[in-house]
Design a protein around this nucleic acid. Structure first.
Lengths: 97, 97
DNA sequence: ATAATATATTAGAATATGCTAATATATTGA
DNA sequence: TCAATATATTAGCATATTCTAATATATTAT
């Protein structure tokens, strides 16, 4: 079973890397294909693919093949849920003081 | 100047490391001295100090010397603010779809 | 089937991170 | 001042990450 701790930790791993956050940031404006991400982030194609794989494993993005291309999209439901849970913990601590 | 991107990235670096998240987790129940954190996390004293230094640099904790001891506390204001800003971005994207 | 395009995977070098052991500094009390 | 306790720093090794270059796979069109 995965604890909230593990998930937050994975989330942090995802956005804690500069190139990965660059990719996440690019996805805020909507789903993008790998090529589009390569253009937008100025990272090499293999590197983008490698980081997308990690982002997918951490649950931050989802992918969908569309013919020749693969479109990656922010998994906003998951992110939002995680952020909400973490915010709740932080807020609880804040009020306690 | 520090952008939101940089800050979120630093935040991720902070909680993206297993031992560091362990420390952050221990701090959710209130400020603790280094010794207390060493006990609670079962990590070595130098390691805890090293990670606390990083957590301090990323803005996740603050420290305050109390005589012989140093008490570390979660910087909940900063965390809460960051989470709120990130949540806003994610929510905006979520609604856009 | 073959060529063209998009994406993924792999191997290996470069760099960064995490850890332990040893040592240094800071504070307090005798 | 000296010993005791708490914390911080440093050096060096082990491991993990990041990156590039080369190659593999998948899809589409001819």
């Amino acid at each position: 079973m995965t604890t909230l701790c593990d998930e937050i930790n994975k989330f942090g791993k995802g956005i804690g890397s500069a190139p990965r956050y660059k990719i996440v940031e690019a996805l805020f404006s909507g789903g993008k294909t790998v090529s589009e991400l390569v253009k937008k982030t100025a990272l090499s194609q293999p590197l983008v693919s490698q980081h997308l794989k990690i982002l997918k494993e951490t649950g931050l993005v989802t992918d969908e093949r569309q013919g020749q291309e693969v479109r990656y999209t922010l998994n906003t439901e998951h992110m939002f849920d995680l952020l909400k849970r973490l915010t709740t913990e932080v807020r609880a601590h804040k009020l306690k003081k």
